[in-house]
Design a protein around this nucleic acid. Structure first.
Lengths: 243, 243
DNA sequence: GAAATAGTGTCTTTAAGACAGTATGTG
DNA sequence: CACATACTGTCTTAAAGACACTATTTC
C-alpha cells in the first residue's frame, strides 16, 4: 500500500495493515462420528496437506459474510448454522505474509456434505480423532477412511480442536441436534448425536427424561417405518432458537 | 488462512488489507459491583464519548500481545488475566476506515484499577448496568458515580455485553474469583463476587458446600481480624489453573 | 417364537434449597 | 448481654444413574 513508517515509540503514524481471512470448520456426522470438510492444498506452503475451507475477507463484507461466502463457493453450502470461534494471529502462522484468520464453526446436516461436488480441487469429509475428553481442549486430528492421519496445514489442527470444544459446550444449553438431524428424528438418533459429539456414552434413561422435560422436543405423532424392530416415536424441535 | 489464489469470481489478485485493532474490557469489582475501565475520546469520531482501552495491532505481535501492550500503556496494568472474546468486523463499525477489532476480556484485582494514574487522557472506572438476566446477552451500558449513563463509542456497548456474558459463563467451571480477590479471602467475599457477576443472590448454604467440595479452595489457617462480628476463616485458591 | 430396539416404573444416590440452631467475635 | 455474622446439622426436593420389566415391530 503506502508507507507505514514506524513512528517514535509504538504507535505508527499510519497503522500497519493485515490480510484478514476466515476459515470454516464444517462439522457433520457420518456413521455417528464427527467429520469435517477438508480441501487439499494445490500449492505451497503445505502443498498436498489438507486445509479447512477458507479465504480472504473482502473490503465490503463482515467476517461472517465472508465465512458464508466461503462455504458457498467451496462447498456449495448455504443457510447452514455458522458462528465465530476464535481469531488466530501468531505472526508466524502463515510463512508467506502477515495474516490474521478468524476461525468459524459450521454445523451441517449429515446428508448435505455427503453429496458435495468436487468443485475446484480435491475435497474430502474426514473423520476427527479427539485425543482428549470433556472440554479439556487441544489440537484435534483428522483421518481418512482407512484411519490414516491426514496432514493439516497452518494452525488448522488447533481450529479443529477449538470447534470440538465449542460444540461440546453448546450441547448443554442449545439444541445442537437441530442442525445435524433431519426434521423428524427419534430419541435414539438424538442420543447418538450427543454421544458422537461428547465422545462418550450417555445414560439412556436419563437422556430421555432430560430431553423430554426440556421442552425443546415435541412428538410428530408419526413413528419410524422400515426398521427391523419396534419403531420409535418421531420428534421435532420446538424452540427454533438456533438458526 | 488459506490460499491467496486468484480464484474465479470475486477475489482480487492482491487481497485487501485491514487495520486490525484490539479493545479490552477490563472488569473489576468496586463495592461488590461490576465496573470497567473507560477512556474519554479526545477526538472525532465520537468525540467526548467513552471508549474501551484499545489500539492497533503492530506487525510483529499477536493480538494477545497487542492487548497486553494496550493494558500496560493505557492503564499501567501488567500480568492480569486476559482472554480473547470476539472479533467485530461490520464494515460500518468505524466511520474512518475499514477496520476489524478483536475484543478481549481482562479480570483485574479490585485494588489495582482504583489506583491508576490519569495517563494520557481522561480515564474512569464506571459501573456496569446489565439489562438482562442469566446469559441472555445483549448490549450493556456504563454509568458514572451518580448513576448517569455514559455514551459509549463504536460498538463498545456490545463488547461490554459480551464480556459480562462470558464471565458469567466462566463462573460455572473456573475459579474466577482468583483474579478479582486478594490472596486470602472469606467464603462470604467469594460469594459476593459471584453474586456481583451473576447479578442475582445465591443460596448461602449451597454456595459454601459447593465451593468447599470443589477442591479449588484450601483454608489458610488464619481468620479475619478487625471486623465487628465473628471473624470468618480465610481461604486461598489451590488450583491455579486460571493464569 | 427369537431378535432387536422402544419405552415404563421404581429404587438409590447426589446435590441444591430450606431452615433451625450453635459458635465466636465486637460494642 | 445484645448484636452481627460465621458455621453446622438435618430435612426436603429434584434430577441422574441403575436396573428390572413390558411393548412392538420384523424375520
Amino acid at each position: 500500500m503506502t508507507t507505514r513508517k514506524p513512528a517514535t515509540s509504538s504507535t505508527p503514524a499510519e497503522p500497519e495493515r493485515f490480510v484478514v481471512a476466515v476459515d470454516v470448520v464444517a462439522l457433520t456426522l457420518v456413521d455417528d462420528q464427527l467429520h469435517t470438510l477438508l480441501i487439499r492444498r494445490p500449492a505451497a506452503p503445505f502443498k498436498g496437506a489438507w486445509m479447512l475451507p477458507g479465504g480472504v475477507v473482502l473490503g465490503k463484507e463482515s467476517v461472517m459474510r465472508a465465512a458464508e461466502r466461503v462455504l458457498r463457493e467451496k462447498a456449495g453450502l448455504a443457510g447452514v448454522y455458522l458462528e465465530q470461534l476464535y481469531t488466530y494471529s501468531e505472526p508466524a502462522r502463515d510463512p508467506r505474509d502477515r495474516s490474521v484468520s478468524i476461525a468459524h464453526l459450521a454445523l451441517v446436516d449429515s446428508g448435505r456434505l455427503q453429496s458435495l461436488k468436487p468443485h475446484e480441487g480435491e475435497t474430502t469429509v474426514a473423520r476427527l480423532e479427539v485425543p482428549w475428553e470433556g472440554e479439556a481442549g487441544g489440537a484435534v486430528g483428522a483421518v481418512d477412511a482407512s484411519g490414516t492421519p491426514l496432514t493439516l496445514a497452518f494452525d488448522h489442527a488447533d481450529m479443529l480442536g477449538l470447534a470440538v470444544k465449542r460444540v461440546r459446550g453448546k450441547l448443554d444449553y442449545t439444541p445442537v441436534g437441530y442442525q445435524l438431524l433431519p426434521e423428524a428424528f427419534t430419541l435414539s438418533q438424538l442420543q447418538r448425536v450427543h454421544e458422537a459429539i461428547l465422545g462418550r456414552p450417555l445414560n439412556k434413561d436419563s437422556f430421555r427424561r432430560r430431553m423430554l422435560a426440556s421442552g425443546e422436543l415435541e412428538p410428530t405423532g408419526e413413528s419410524q417405518s422400515e426398521v427391523d424392530h419396534r419403531p420409535a416415536a418421531l420428534y421435532r424441535f420446538t424452540a427454533r432458537s438456533a438458526v
